[in-house]
Nucleic acid binder design. Structure first.
Lengths: 293, 293
DNA sequence: ACAAAAGTGTTAAGCATACACCCATGA
DNA sequence: TCATGGGTGTATGCTTAACACTTTTGT
């Protein structure tokens, strides 16, 4: 990741004079932040109409959208030229969340609808010749509309979750873990809504669940379960996705603003500050998760 | 942006002399590790026999054991003299888990039966005049027998979870979060067994669940549920706790060695290394969790 | 009218809960 | 033989899952 490479060179340049290997080994590690950014891919975007119909024909394959994530190409050793997670430094005058938000924003120009600490990775085996590095990793969800821009930059490119290139450091395992967390969390949390826009039809939400869970869910029961949760509010609008009967459009309105399982997330204060700093108040409103551990 | 950031920080670090407050604020924070250590308290230790019977008489109060945790008294500013979580430095030649294990062991001389990363805390608001600090926090469970020693040292003391003294920094919130995680995890994981010894009766296990969940569970149903999980193996032994019929003794034997929700825990390799280093192989065997996220 | 998707109803199976009951043991 | 905890049986209610069915819309 970027921060890994950076620290590597920082150590070299700064001339701290590591006398030998053992001295360097026992020195405290550097810290950085990385982000696994997830968004629904363009495969079966309902907007694209035709794709939807023909993919439904396919017997065996799942006609679901896939998850995509942006990676950045490393411009330094180790792993020069290899794809890696977006990352950056930890600033001590920012919260961890803010640092993660900043890393996300500066590499992808996206604004997440969800941001949560994933895990902190460390240990000697992940340096690969660089300086020892502890990475506080966050994972983020980006809404459909935002992610639709999908402007692959020169050093940033989106990849589907199941067709990842070789990755630097232990970033492959980190991504796998993020996907695991997402798949786990979708069953008892509201994260699915964060991959769509602020409003959505039940069929869209159903599609997200199926895409992420990887199994097909009875639409009728899904509908009932969702509606009985009381967290979906009918906007009154109707939208036609295909050529048939229009579907009701819902908005996610958490009834009990419970915690997500991580501290700091009772409110989105960290995000709020970030959003404010960047004059994007809408992000603020979108980020008030409600779920259980 | 990232490269801007990098140069920025590189320049700052090089001199090592932080000129003023704003420069110090933007410098990268230090990293450390802390541990929330939990064990069942001596309140209603089944071994003590008599206590068990009389506490059952008490109508309103819960006769359950309480959770206790060891705290250390700070010998530096800020918060000099205040109780705080055990902690230590991160060594770059150790895994995070090993560093946590080491911090735990060196302050309490205990060997945990469970160790898992809790969360990483950071941000400017937690310094309180000290250096900016990022704390990778682990939580640990210690078995009944181990914890029974309970030798309060000069600077280490055990406190019951519901009678904590004022704590340094944000350690109170950290502990609360650890308890939240424990209470959440006990419902779908095997963590309860880690608070007892390697073998236990169903009644003992039931007691742990009640103590942690805070609600009373039907013993008959609890028994069925546990046995039907297939993770309990009858050792064939019988033990009398009171003066009545002896109870069967079980051992926890996870059927599917699934993951706990955190990476690195698929095996207890980090712990294994630590245990080996300290010539305590039994710890190794005890640490192979099986649960879900 | 027909096709396709939106949306509702109905029933069976499974699981959790409550609690009645029998069994084993020492005093 | 009695008290106490160990251990089993069973009825009830709720949730889940499966799928048949009705409704709405554009063609």
């Amino acid at each position: 990741m970027l921060s890994d490479q950076k620290e590597y060179f920082t150590g070299k340049r700064q001339g701290m004079g590591f006398g030998n290997v053992s001295e360097r080994r026992s020195a405290p590690p550097q810290v950085g932040v990385s982000v696994v950014i997830l968004a629904l891919g363009p495969d079966d975007m309902p907007e694209h109409g035709a794709t939807q119909a023909e993919s439904a024909e396919t017997g065996a394959g799942t006609p679901h959208s896939r998850l995509w994530l942006p990676l950045v190409k490393r411009v330094r050793q180790p792993f020069l030229g290899t794809w890696a997670l977006p990352g950056g430094d930890l600033r001590s005058d920012w919260s961890l969340e803010q640092s993660a938000y900043s890393a996300l924003e500066s590499t992808t120009a996206l604004h997440p609808r969800y941001l949560e600490q994933l895990y902190t990775f460390g240990g000697p085996e992940r340096s690969h010749g660089g300086l020892p590095m502890v990475s506080v990793v966050y994972w983020a969800l980006v809404g459909q509309a935002e992610a639709a821009h999908f402007e692959d930059g020169d050093n940033v490119r989106w990849f589907p979750e199941d067709e990842l290139p070789p990755l630097a450091f232990d970033h492959r395992e980190i991504i796998d873990y993020a996907l695991l967390r997402l798949r786990s969390k979708i069953e008892y949390s509201d994260v699915a809504t964060r991959l769509l826009g602020p409003t959505f039809t039940l069929r869209q939400l159903h599609g997200v669940y199926e895409a992420i869970a990887g199994e097909s869910l009875d639409l009728a029961n899904f509908r009932r379960k969702m509606l009985s949760s009381g967290d979906l509010e009918d906007t009154g609008e109707k939208v036609r996705e295909g050529r048939q009967r229009p579907a009701a459009v819902y908005r996610y309105v958490p009834q009990l603003p419970a915690h997500t399982g991580t501290p700091h997330e009772f409110d989105g204060s960290g995000i709020a500050a970030m959003a404010k700093r960047n004059e994007r108040k809408d992000v603020l409103a979108a980020l008030s998760p409600s779920a259980q551990i």
